[in-house]
Write a protein that binds this DNA or RNA. Structure first.
Lengths: 218, 218
DNA sequence: AAAAGTATGTTGGAAATCCAACGAGGTTAT
DNA sequence: ATAACCTCGTTGGATTTCCAACATACTTTT
């Protein structure tokens, strides 16, 4: 398990924690490794979360379904990123699914153990809580930005809001996005075909250029 | 200033912090009190946040505007609640406005001072970070739930998702909501009149009952 | 008490989105 | 190489939402 943790040693979660502390951290936070095949469900809606995950290998998506089956992609999880931490920390039932979109490997840590430092390892506890605060604050910012996109009334405005935020993030008018068309439509909460149509209109009107995942604001 | 802090002494932010520590906390985190009249702007979009606020008295709204002026209400701030903490902690530019909807009084605290405990007051520092983590985790959950509502495709589904989440929160089929019609429409990202029409339909179809802010799921 | 203002519900036509279906181009599997 | 599959863009009709305007009830101001 320690060698798995090695793979994510430059993650934000364990930044500033010494290598020799990692082993006691795994014990103290009840670390468990689980493996998932592509398509498998990692966390189900309604499941009570007590542990949060850090993705060691593979690729995950956080998604929600309505009763008809429409899918909304909340976010994409890359290796070294954590998920489920907010719900786990306040001990709430998950309101989303986490699905493996590639074969994946996840380390779960017990969030209830975070704020109750045992005597022998309180150095990493303090650092871990600080790191977690930073991560959750960032996620908060990202959720707020997703809401900024979704709260626009038309598909065109949603797209332009998303693209301009991406442009700012990448500090460039040109950038690659991490979503394919269907995922982007899910993220923005619109119909894929309608979105494609709007993208074409925006290109025809000379507002953007794009090819596959590459975009340029004009 | 200390007597202002007294008014919010049972807030989640300073829960578990001893009364005699509050004074040193105010000094250490550079506490500042500011007053706002109804309608005034507390935080403007684009403003770099280094302090977060705790509402002492009054009522605030976190809102966003698009370029046409459509308003989206992110959330309502009641006394004892904090705001701007995520953006302040990661030192980002605000992506929202905070507006006073009543005459209000706000205490601002410097979030950069949070993680750098001075020797003489590290007890409350640790507790404060824990409290903040709890608050931000909760907000995270709330943002996720707002996204859950907004990602539904029709106004009817958005309403039903919102109402069923409220019902769960209140652990009852009957409950009062904190939004008036316009604010609710803004929160869900839909047109007020269209929402009114859908509410009437839902009532006619025997799915819900409501009067003003009172709702009942059937 | 009258007037002004606010919140809610209703309406009908304009506009946008959704939905289902299809075609073009590219990739993967056999 | 062929077939099967997937992604993306396009189209047209059905559906939904938006928008502006107005009616009603209730609240606040004068």
């Amino acid at each position: 398990m320690l060698e798995d943790l090695e793979k994510v040693k430059d993650s934000i979660l364990i930044k500033g924690i010494k290598t020799q502390e990692l082993s006691s951290m795994l014990g103290c936070l009840r670390g468990v490794i689980k493996k998932y095949n592509k398509g498998e469900t990692v966390i189900s809606e309604g499941q009570k979360l007590e542990k949060f995950g850090i993705l060691i290998e593979g690729n995950l998506q956080i998604v929600q379904y309505d009763y008809i089956g429409n899918k909304s992609v909340i976010s994409v999880i890359q290796p070294k990123q954590i998920f489920g931490e907010a719900f786990a920390y306040v001990n709430k039932v998950s309101s989303f699914n986490v699905e493996a979109i590639e074969n994946s490997q996840v380390l779960f840590l017990d969030s209830n153990k975070l704020s109750t430092p045992c005597e022998n390892c309180c150095t990493f506890h303090k650092q871990l809580v600080k790191n977690l605060l930073f991560i959750i604050s960032n996620k908060n910012v990202n959720l707020t930005q997703k809401i900024e996109c979704m709260s626009k009334r038309t598909t065109k405005e949603k797209l332009l809001t998303f693209l301009s935020l991406e442009s700012i993030k990448n500090k460039s008018k040109e950038f690659y996005i991490q979503y394919d068309r269907q995922s982007l439509a899910d993220y923005l909460g619109v119909e894929r075909s309608a979105m494609s149509t709007e993208l074409s209109k925006l290109r025809k009107d000379g507002i953007i250029e794009f090819e596959k995942n590459w975009f340029k604001l004009l």
